[in-house]
Nucleic acid binder design. Structure first.
Lengths: 191, 191
DNA sequence: CCTCGACAAACGAACGTTCGTTTGCCTAAA
DNA sequence: TTTAGGCAAACGAACGTTCGTTTGTCGAGG
């Protein structure tokens, strides 16, 4: 028996995939239904609205990044070690949840005002973690003391956030090699 | 003269602004008309289709970046000087045409297949210019000889392409300071 | 062992709205 | 007198969503 009924989780996962590929406004409920072998209307057995799907996907992304940062901050050692942990954690989130990450990074601005501002402050907090580690490293000698904390943090985060634009699961650069390259690049630029 | 009639150029400029802000699929012809004080239907006096507007904006972006790269390549001196010229040119394109640049970077994938592939190869060519300069610098001693050309180029371009996401015209970091920071960051990371 | 009620999942038709676009007309300027 | 720019009305298609109904599954009671 191949009954294969869909759960809400299946719907959210497929939504993440299509939102990442075509954008929120470029994806219709009928598109999403087709992806699951359903009619568009059938999705409302699982979800109250299209916007709800975007909220679910984007908030999952926010949770993943937040959890990653929290864990990286618990790394013992120098500020440079903690930056490496932040980088590795970020790469893992993107590589293991690429559709969620893409939707989080590119489609969060399509959220309605309240959800969007919640997400924006979550992102602010995530970026502040990077700034604090760079600042710490500039103070304790891990990095160059004259580094512009704000700008350097933006640059590092820019590289990390761009990974979703070019990374391919079975490409020539795997997770470990990517983390190593990023770590080297960041350390070289900051010292 | 109170005659405030709109030209095709006005329409394309407004389209770039709205596409950058809300995305192509998030912008309706009626939205765009309102932006210009017109009905949506009136736009068809200037343009054959909504897709045409996206084509116009994105191809203008492609032309700007391509022209910038071409000029930077004519810079005399070391590979490091040429990379600085590439960086400065890229910043100028983004800072002086931020809506066009945002639409080029984020909405090109909404183009129909033929236009999209044309734009993708233009972007490929632009990125190849960066790779060639990094490669040249690795060979002639401007940069570390062991640098991974592909990956390092991606990293530099990632930072440049992310500028549209955070740069604000009258922020605390002006064009010159930004170019200087980028140049320092890239040189430090590559040597 | 059968059957019944409950329930979640999905269907299919329809709702009102918005979409991109077309058409015909009008007006102000050249 | 021509014509480009804009209006007003309308088109068919697609949109997100609602609704009543059907289907399949499963545990409890007879």
């Amino acid at each position: 028996m191949v009954t294969a009924r869909n759960t809400r989780e299946d719907v959210v996962r497929a939504a993440g995939r299509l939102f990442a590929e075509r954008g929120y406004h470029g994806t219709s409920m009928r598109d999403l239904g087709k992806e699951l072998g359903l009619l568009g209307s059938s999705l409302y057995s699982h979800v109250a609205s299209k916007q709800d799907l975007l909220v679910d996907v984007v908030e999952e992304g926010a949770r993943l990044f937040e959890a990653s940062a929290e864990q990286a901050l618990r790394t013992e050692g120098t500020a440079s070690d903690r930056l490496d942990a932040l980088i590795a954690g970020h790469v893992d989130v993107v590589v293991d949840n690429i559709e969620v990450a893409r939707t989080f990074l590119n489609e969060a601005r399509m959220l309605d005002a309240e959800h969007r501002s919640r997400i924006l402050s979550a992102r602010d907090h995530y970026e502040e973690v990077f700034r604090s580690v760079v600042r710490e490293g500039a103070a304790d000698g891990s990095f160059d003391a004259g580094v512009d904390v704000k700008t350097a943090s933006i640059f590092v985060l820019s590289i990390l956030n761009a990974i979703e634009r070019w990374y391919r699961p079975h490409g020539e650069l795997d997770r470990d090699a990517l983390v190593a390259q990023l770590s080297n690049f960041a350390r070289a630029a900051l010292t």
